[in-house]
Simulated assay, not measured.
Amino acid sequence: MTPRILLVEDEPSIAEIVDFALTSEGFAVVWRTLIGEAEAELAATPCDLAILDLGLPDGSGLELLKRLRRSSEMPVLILSARNAELDRVLGLELGADDYVTNPFSPRELAARVKAILKRAFRPQPDVDQPDPCPLPNGLVVDEIRAVIRFRHQRLDLTRYEYLLLKTLLAQPERVFSRAQLMDQVWPDPAASFERSVDTHIKTLRAKLRDIDPDHDPIRTHRGLGYSIRVRDGSP
Rank of each mutant, 00 (worst) to 15 (best):
G138T: 05
I14C: 10
D216R: 02
Y162N: 02
E108Q: 15
H221D: 05
R178W: 04
L204I: 01
L68E: 07
L68K: 07
L164Y: 07
R70T: 09
P103F: 00
R231V: 13
T199G: 14
L7Q: 09
V197N: 04
D214N: 14
K166V: 01
L94Q: 03
L49T: 01
R67D: 09
D142H: 11
M1Y: 02
L90D: 12
P187I: 08
L139V: 08
G55V: 15
L77Q: 00
R88D: 09
F193A: 14
A40I: 03
L157Y: 04
L92G: 00
I17V: 13
R195F: 13
A115C: 10
G55P: 10
L22A: 08
A111K: 11
D142Q: 11
I228W: 03
D232V: 13
Y160V: 12
L77Y: 06
P123N: 02
W31Q: 10
R82Y: 11
E39W: 02
L94S: 06
R119D: 05
C133E: 15
R82N: 05
Y99F: 01
L164C: 00
R82F: 01
R174Q: 15
K207N: 07
V18L: 05
P57I: 10
D48N: 14
L90E: 13
P123W: 07
T158P: 07
Q129F: 15
P132F: 01
R195E: 14
L34Q: 12
E93T: 11
E73V: 03
G233R: 06
L155Y: 06
E73D: 15
D232W: 14
V127T: 14
D214I: 10
K166E: 11
F176P: 05
P123Y: 00
P134V: 00
S60G: 04
L62K: 07
E161D: 06
E39T: 08
R149Q: 03
F20N: 09
L92I: 13
R174T: 11
P103M: 02
R88G: 04
H200F: 04
F193Q: 13
M74F: 02
S196D: 13
C133I: 15
D188W: 09
T45H: 14
S13F: 13
I201A: 08
V141I: 05
D214P: 07
T101C: 08
L155D: 09
R205N: 10
R4N: 13
R222S: 13
A84I: 12
R4Q: 14
L208Q: 05
T158A: 02
